[in-house]
Each structure stands twice: as C-alpha cells, then as structure tokens.
Design a protein around this nucleic acid. Structure first.
Length: 298
DNA sequence: TTCAATGTTTAGAC
DNA sequence: GGTCTAAACATTGA
C-alpha cells in the first residue's frame, strides 16, 4: 500500500504537474467515501491549484478559493494526472499505473480547464476523498481524530530517542505504525526498518539499547530515502504509451519476502501474525532476546 | 466460502 | 477511570 515514500513522490510530481491549473468539473461514481460536506462542486469550479502537500500519508490539495481536497489512498488508492503532454502517477501498483484512465477502478475525476484530468483510482475502495476548508482546524477534522505525530524524515535522532523512550512498554513494530507516534509508517516500512536495524518486531522499547534505537531510526530514514529515490525515478518518467514499471516493493528486504533468503545471512524470512498485522523478519538476524538462543536455529 | 489486505475506530477487558 | 488489546469496518480479488 502507499506509505509515506509513495505519498511523497506523488505529491512532488503533482506539484509540478497541476499547480496553477484551474478546476473545471468533478465527477464521481462513488458517493459513500466522497464527502462534499456542506459544499458542492460549484464551490470548486474556477479555483486554481495553489499547492499540493501532505501530512503523514494524507494528501492535501490547496485551492485558491480557500478550499482543500483531502485524500487518503489507504490500501489500493492511486492518483494519476494526465493531459496531452504528460502523465504523472503514484500509489498502489494494481492496476498498473500505466493502464489507460479512466478505468474500472476510477472513483473520482477532476477535470481542469487545460483538458488535463486528475484521477483518483481505488480498486478496494478503502481510501477516501474529502472537500473541506483550508484552515488547519477543518483539515484536521477531515483527516480524523488521530493527532498525527512528527514526520520521520524531519525528525532528529535525539527527538526520536526522547519520544520513543516515553513508551517503554510498547512493542516496537506496533509503536512504529502508530500514526500518533510518527506519521507515515505502515506495515511495509516498519518491517523494512526493523530488518535493517536487526531488531525483532516484538521487542519492547524498554529492552532496546540507545544504539539499537538509533539503528531503527536510521533504518526508517534509509528505507524511506531509497523508496523515494526509486519511486521518484519511476513516477517522474513521463509516459506516453510506454508505462513506468513502478519500482514499488522491488527493493523490499523483508516485507512480503516470506520464504525468500535474507539478503544478509540467507536464512528464510518468516511471516508471523502479531498485533493484528503480519510481520516479516529474518529469524536469525532479528532475535527476540539479546541473549544467544539456547536452541540452535536451523 | 473464507481469507487477507490497511489505517482507524470502537467495544471490551483488565 | 484510564490504558491496552482484540475485533470491527469498508471492499474486493484470489
């Protein structure tokens, strides 16, 4: 699913592609998750795109008339902008991002006066699009009750260290995915970061040494940086006919690699249910206790 | 038919 | 009463 790196990439691309464009019309076939609130399409017509930004995994398109379009891609959402010259896409890779639009997964279509279109596609319909006023209070209300934590890419190591130590009883993977702790990490990057740091996902914060916590922080930033680089190169390739591959997940070392050899030691990556999610990790590199296991690991 | 996928929320347990 | 967890939710393809 799209997490912070994917969202960052699409936000950057959209900023280049649609900033300054004027909205002409909006179409949608899917009311339940498309909230106009007390507003109507008329409120958006003629307004100009001022800025595209994000808060955690939430994408925010600010308009010149004091309104904003707030989008969450959730599990299978994707955003595709296309006009006569360029195509910019990002999000979940199914259906392929180079598939012609609109298609069967297209839920909302924003048309601009330059004849370009921004498509919100979502195969599984877990995502949502909301229209709200641009002030922070309204946007916060649109996003939900969860107070988003700091952005992991804009955080310092010290800040991370201080913050994490306030939750000694929490399990590390669970905490990393808690959006109020840090915004933007989901199942993929918590697995990746912990694999990089060689930390078992079930370790409690209290059991972690400072250097281990620092390694986790580095793991988060490194995997994000790598993903943004990869995603950026694919999403920025302007396509006509020839689709971008979508390097999504091709760099993963742990996530969805069950049964595949660990890139470090060759041990098979295992998948284990915990805290309602499946965690992927290397049972040799990432051990639960610091002590050497009494039993031989095969 | 059941399961799995996700972030967020709610109901329930302690 | 607050904190933590397990389950529910919305939806569809495999």
């Amino acid at each position: 699913m799209p997490e912070l790196p994917e969202v960052t990439v699409i936000v950057n691309s959209l900023n280049k592609a649609i900033r300054g464009l004027v909205l002409e019309s909006v179409e949608y076939d899917w009311k339940p998750k498309f909230y106009w609130g007390k507003f109507s399409i008329k409120d958006l017509k003629g307004s100009k795109v001022k800025d595209v930004r994000r808060q955690g995994k939430v994408i925010i398109i600010d308009l010149s008339n004091g309104m904003s379009i707030v989008i969450h891609l959730k599990l299978t959402g994707q955003l595709i902008y296309q006009d006569k010259k360029i195509r910019v896409s990002g999000g979940h890779p199914i259906p392929p991002l180079n598939k012609p639009v609109p298609n069967s997964t297209t839920r909302v279509t924003f048309a601009f006066t330059n004849e370009g279109h921004l498509y919100f596609n979502d195969m599984r319909k877990f995502g949502w699009v909301k229209i709200t006023k641009s002030d922070e209070a309204s946007i916060k209300e649109a996003i939900g009750k969860v107070e988003l934590g700091p952005d992991p890419m804009e955080m310092t190591e010290t800040e991370f260290l201080d913050r994490i130590k306030k939750k000694p009883q929490q399990r590390i993977k669970k905490l990393l995915m808690d959006q109020s702790f840090v915004a933007g990490i989901g199942n993929i990057y918590s697995d990746e970061a912990l694999w990089r740091a060689k930390i078992h996902p079930k370790r409690s914060i209290a059991s972690l040494s400072d250097s281990e916590i620092k390694a986790i922080f580095k793991g988060i930033q490194d995997s994000f940086k790598l993903a943004i680089e990869k995603g950026g190169s694919s999403a920025n390739s302007f396509v006509d006919g020839r689709g971008e591959k979508g390097l999504y997940l091709t760099f993963a070392k742990a996530y969805h690699m069950t049964g595949k050899p660990c890139a470090r030691c060759g041990t098979k990556i295992v998948r284990q249910k915990m805290d309602g999610r499946s965690a992927h990790f290397c049972p040799k590199c990432q051990v639960l206790t610091k002590e050497k296991p009494a039993l031989k690991l095969i």
